[in-house]
């Protein structure tokens, strides 16, 4: 980064070996950068290739809109609707928990907490993001599911609702940290401008800071939703994995990722069921891809707005 100090004898400042090393480093970095993009493309392509036979034999639309999931019966039915509905319920319950709690926490950390609490809170959030989902699943099985069963008077606690609650907990770190970033990015001059008008901190937060950060907060919610839709382990352990379309979140349900993870081990490699599961993966991949892309473009727009 720094210029060679002795400009009359540049060969001493930059011997040939360092020039070669720099070139190598640059090449490695470029290759690594493109690898990530190539991998993404490869994943999409592989999903597509593996699901091709399902798409041509069963039809993509009849899978997406099919109401029955009997993959092992003699006349197999490959309808995704039970899994799609279950995924939706889990995501809705998760968002109903993690959006209010997550956004409120972000507002607290960014606008009201003093620095020491802020630092502690941030590392707690990071720690929380690192908890393996299977551990949360265990806690859900032993504590949450029985609680749901007795509280709501259900036959079983293993429902979309229980899974949604736990998935909501898992999405909290994502929502909190991204929403906090968005609030933090709001220039302090705006807060000062509002406070100097004789508004309280809360009025300032509510009427100026949060609206100014709204697109970033929205992106945080979108990314949380992406996480909720794709979460597998907790759902597999807690949702009950019923094959019936659940009319309410208080019924056992299955989700797209849960179905794939639960059944892939039992299918014949290369068979129709196998290919259908890949088609399911393709649908899931596209949904989360679109959500993440939308969230990203919203975030980028907000970043550009404050770069004055």
């Amino acid at each position: 980064m720094s210029e060679p100090r002795n400009t009359t004898r540049p060969s001493i400042g930059r011997p040939g070996i360092s020039r070669a090393a720099e070139g190598l480093a640059k090449t490695i970095i470029i290759i690594s950068g493109w690898t990530a993009i190539a991998l993404l493309g490869a994943i999409a392509a592989y999903l597509f290739i593996e699901s091709r036979s399902a798409i041509s034999e069963v039809g993509l639309w009849s899978m997406i809109s099919g109401e029955l999931w009997y993959p092992t019966s003699k006349t197999a039915q490959y309808g995704f609707l039970p899994s799609e509905t279950g995924t939706l319920w889990v995501a809705i319950v998760a968002l109903m928990l993690c959006v209010p709690v997550g956004v409120a926490s972000a507002v607290y950390i960014s606008e009201f907490a003093d620095k020491r609490i802020k630092d502690v809170y941030k590392s707690v959030i990071e720690f929380m993001a690192g908890i393996p989902s299977v551990v949360l699943g265990l806690i859900g099985l032993s504590l949450l599911a029985p609680w749901v069963r007795t509280t709501f008077g259900l036959d079983t606690g293993l429902t979309a609702f229980a899974a949604g609650l736990m998935v909501g907990v898992m999405c909290l770190p994502t929502i909190i940290s991204i929403a906090e970033d968005a609030l933090h990015a709001v220039p302090s001059e705006l807060r000062m401008g509002s406070l100097a008008l004789g508004n309280t901190r809360w009025q300032t937060t509510y009427r100026v800071t949060i609206p100014a950060a709204s697109s970033g907060i929205f992106a945080a919610i979108m990314l949380g939703m992406g996480r909720a839709i794709g979460e597998t382990m907790v759902v597999l352990m807690l949702a009950g994995n019923s094959g019936i379309i659940p009319n309410t979140p208080f019924l056992p349900a299955r989700t797209l990722p849960g179905t794939i993870a639960g059944e892939l081990g039992e299918v014949v490699r290369g068979g129709q069921h196998y290919s259908v599961l890949f088609a399911m993966g393709l649908v899931l991949f596209m949904v989360t891809f679109v959500i993440n892309l939308a969230a990203d473009s919203v975030l980028e727009r907000q970043r550009r707005r404050w770069r004055r």
Binding site: E189, M192, G193, S194, L195, A196, G198, N199, V208, P211
Partner: peptide, 20 residues
């Protein structure tokens, strides 16, 4: 202080209009 600031306004160095 909140009441004071309603009677004593401030204009800052850099224009800081709200995004509205």
């Amino acid at each position: 202080p909140v009441d004071l600031r309603r009677r004593v306004g401030q204009v800052f160095q850099k224009p800081n209009p709200f995004p509205m």
